[in-house]
Design a protein around this nucleic acid. Structure first.
Lengths: 119, 119
DNA sequence: TTCTATATGTCGTTTGGCGATATATAGGCT
DNA sequence: AGCCTATATATCGCCAAACGACATATAGAA
């Protein structure tokens, strides 16, 4: 019950980019969606179903915290804000290390060692 | 019909590492499993169900080709070998570019610009 | 002969990603 | 006023991906 195994080990590209988008400052859903697109140069485009589903799971596994922002001026639906936790940061950093390593390996193997060894 | 959407857009870490493992030379399943573990420094460990399932899907979407190797010496089950295709290489390279960009961004945001800007 | 490593596979379940759809507000254009 | 687009949040249901558990077979070392 309530397992909440939470996101662990390697993060999916989608989850990685959501956490990356929250790295500098808290944001609300729509902001995250835009940020992910620009961060990934258009290669990761989150549908709203993916986005809000992922945010709910991330909150349950405590990689992010959610809270209500005040509705701007007039009464209306309060925006929901999300911020990354310390746990979220460490997971993101772990994934960052894997990707850095993987990027180097794939660069060597795809482009050849010629591009690596200088002079 | 025949959709087989095939692996596109961003690759999952698992699929990425399988393609990476096949980058230098063709290999059989068990080799790939070992290679992925070492390539990822233990952060991606493929169960056999994930491995062979993914290999079947990759073959169907033509990112890899499969063929039977001769059973070594004595008669026995022929090993199944897998090799990456040109399409597979381009998909891997596309993902490599995304990861390189993402690695730089996350490094900056996690470690701060201090580590980036020199002097 | 027992144990471990090598080697390949299936089955059933859970989770993740996403298209379709719904709702609501704000601002600009005609 | 009527319409369009962007902003903003959310649910439902489908399908594919990931994985634990299990099954099987060979070869070599202890």
């Amino acid at each position: 019950m309530h397992s909440t195994r939470g996101y662990d080990t390697p993060l999916t590209p989608q989850i990685f980019h959501i956490l990356l988008a929250l790295c500098d400052a808290p944001a609300h859903g729509y902001d995250i969606q835009q940020q992910v697109s620009t961060d990934s140069a258009g290669s990761v485009v989150l549908s709203s179903s993916t986005l809000y589903g992922a945010l709910a799971t991330l909150a349950k596994s405590r990689l992010i915290d959610e809270y209500n922002g005040r509705p701007q001026i007039a009464p209306g639906k309060p925006r929901r804000y999300y911020q990354i936790t310390q746990l979220g940061r460490s997971q993101l950093d772990q994934e960052r290390r894997r990707m850095e390593r993987a990027a180097v390996l794939s660069r060597q193997r795809l482009l050849g060692p010629t591009h690596w060894r200088v002079k």
